Simulated scan of single mutants.
Amino acid sequence: MSQPKLQTFGALSATRTVVAQSIDYDDGTHEIAHVHHRSQLVYATTGIVRAVTPLGFWMLTPGHALLIGSEVEHELHMVGQVSMRTLYIDPGALTEGGTECQMLAVDALLRASILGMFDPSLDDEATVGAGGADTRERLLVPLILRLLQLACERAPDKRLPLPGNPRLRRICERLIAQPASNDTLDDWADEVGASARTVARHFRQETGMTFGQWREQLRLAEAMSKLAVDHPLARIAQELGYADVRTFSAMFRRAFGCTPQQFRQVLHDAH
């Protein structure tokens, strides 16, 4: 990743515990590597967000958000038309204010609370006009902080780990850009100028997975994102390097216990 850009929010937002921002993105939009002084909750009501940090790779499917710690370098890639509702949070307001990232399940109450931060009808017009705190912030911010704390306490580690070794990192970034690649470990080792045995050893040491396991997990994450934005199964199979839909579906069912069609229906029902 390139040198990260620092993004700030100006003096007017400095005293607010939570700064809410709504942004719509076109498919394929890329937010370059950057950092914030605040923690950031990334939540998309439509579309898929792919987040990449020095710590790992996350695919945010519907019903999930990513809490990015303050000062954590990250870049965001949009899949489909993305409507993002982001909260920038004073890290001192979070019980867990470290530098880790956590993918959180967004239940109905947390979703409604996040969306409420963008609903001006919840404000008391007289109070806002007098320069006082917005009613919605006074009501919702304590609830959101409590719900985030509870979500963090039960959040599993859902990241796909990325290695720190520059050669291995280059392999992973190339695969993220081209998940259909079926190049072998020997092919990649030749490209980065190392032996296949050395690459395999360091891959397991740094990610806890073999090269083959890591590539399959990447493809599963990509498959979920493409299913969520209604790509045809034949196109998904081709874009992920599978011989045909049957092979792709068998892999998906082995990993998740359901077919791609059933997974897509669950996503649609969640909306």
Results as ranks from 00 to 15, higher is better:
133 A>D: 14
122 L>M: 12
28 G>M: 08
155 A>T: 02
145 L>Y: 01
269 D>N: 14
61 T>S: 04
204 R>K: 11
256 F>C: 05
243 A>F: 10
251 M>A: 15
69 G>P: 07
63 G>H: 04
168 L>T: 07
150 L>W: 01
49 V>A: 12
113 S>N: 13
20 A>H: 10
271 H>V: 13
188 W>M: 04
33 A>R: 07
229 V>R: 01
202 H>V: 12
7 Q>I: 15
69 G>R: 02
47 G>N: 05
104 L>E: 00
70 S>N: 13
140 L>N: 09
222 E>C: 15
79 V>T: 10
138 R>I: 12
245 V>Q: 06
159 R>K: 11
48 I>C: 00
15 T>E: 12
158 K>F: 11
90 D>K: 03
171 I>K: 01
50 R>F: 11
141 V>K: 08
206 E>D: 08
250 A>H: 06
41 L>T: 02
71 E>P: 00
254 R>E: 14
206 E>V: 04
231 H>R: 11
95 T>N: 08
141 V>D: 10
143 L>I: 14
150 L>C: 01
53 T>G: 02
153 E>V: 01
112 A>M: 11
78 M>V: 08
183 D>W: 13
31 E>V: 15
57 F>D: 06
183 D>S: 13
178 Q>F: 12
22 S>N: 13
82 V>Q: 03
51 A>P: 00
266 V>H: 13
37 H>F: 12
115 L>Q: 09
155 A>V: 06
98 G>Y: 07
22 S>A: 15
21 Q>N: 15
222 E>I: 02
21 Q>A: 15
86 T>D: 07
93 A>M: 07
19 V>H: 14
102 Q>N: 08
148 L>G: 03
102 Q>H: 14
88 Y>H: 15
114 I>D: 03
241 G>I: 08
13 S>D: 10
205 Q>D: 15
48 I>K: 00
197 R>A: 15
231 H>L: 14
176 I>F: 03
229 V>P: 01
163 P>E: 01
135 T>A: 15
37 H>W: 11
42 V>S: 04
232 P>K: 05
210 T>E: 10
82 V>E: 00
3 Q>H: 07
194 A>K: 09
119 D>K: 11
137 E>K: 07
238 Q>V: 04
127 T>L: 12
56 G>H: 03
65 A>F: 01
60 L>T: 08
112 A>W: 02
171 I>M: 12
141 V>S: 08
247 T>L: 13
90 D>G: 02
93 A>I: 00
201 R>W: 11
163 P>T: 07
159 R>P: 00
108 A>S: 14
149 Q>M: 07
